[in-house]
């Protein structure tokens, strides 16, 4: 079973159709997605800014991470849950969206960078925890995190626009990147 046929099956389920056709439920989930995004990326932004040495310089990095990241995790939980529901409401078009695909790739990039940095920090932070401006690797981690979340947000917002939809007739490259099937379901 291909991912596309899995998405077609998802789209045929009762709840997916209900969500898709709902007058208020879909916008409510979408709005919750944006509000929890403010909590999630807003708090991550301040951790990244601290890693760059641009704010909260008198506060040890471990304290900023320890005090702020739990709120980012809470925001991430709501963002993910509402994100899944938004995908579930419109599975096929979203799966075939080039913006959605870039967003998913950037989510992986962000995840890998967070994991790599976490390991680096656990190993070395004792030496630079109190530095007003952390060492280059920590600043790089802050910059990569910041840029990847910005890309996730921008491409996520662009999913709503139909310029690159398969049914609009796309170039060979876009068709390939968006995974456009020979015949649209």
């Amino acid at each position: 079973m291909s991912l596309l046929s899995f998405c077609e099956w998802l789209a045929s389920t009762r709840w997916s159709i209900d969500l898709h056709e709902s007058l208020y439920m879909y916008p409510l989930i979408e709005t919750t997605h944006v509000l929890s995004l403010l909590l999630f990326v807003g708090t991550v932004l301040f951790v990244d800014l601290r890693l760059l040495g641009w704010t909260l310089r008198d506060v040890p990095v471990s304290e900023v991470v320890g005090r702020i990241i739990p709120w980012a995790v809470a925001g991430f939980g709501i963002v993910s849950l509402t994100g899944f529901l938004l995908f579930y409401a419109i599975p096929v078009r979203t799966y075939l969206s080039i913006f959605f695909r870039i967003k998913m790739i950037m989510l992986v990039v962000a995840g890998v960078s967070v994991w790599t940095f976490h390991r680096y920090m656990n190993r070395t932070a004792a030496a630079w925890d109190r530095d007003p401006i952390p060492p280059p690797r920590a600043r790089l981690a802050g910059a990569v995190s910041l840029l990847s979340w910005v890309t996730v947000i921008v491409t996520g917002r662009m999913i709503a626009y139909d310029w690159f939809d398969c049914d609009r007739g796309q170039s060979a490259f876009v068709s390939w990147a968006a995974g456009c099937p020979a015949e649209l379901p």
Partner: peptide, 28 residues
Amino acid sequence: AGHLLGFVMLGGAVFVLDLRLLGFGLRE
């Protein structure tokens, strides 16, 4: 999209201080 990014920045600045006002976050 720029408007949304601006709002994320505002969200961060607002939440970090509001959490502190509520007794959470950077409470040291």
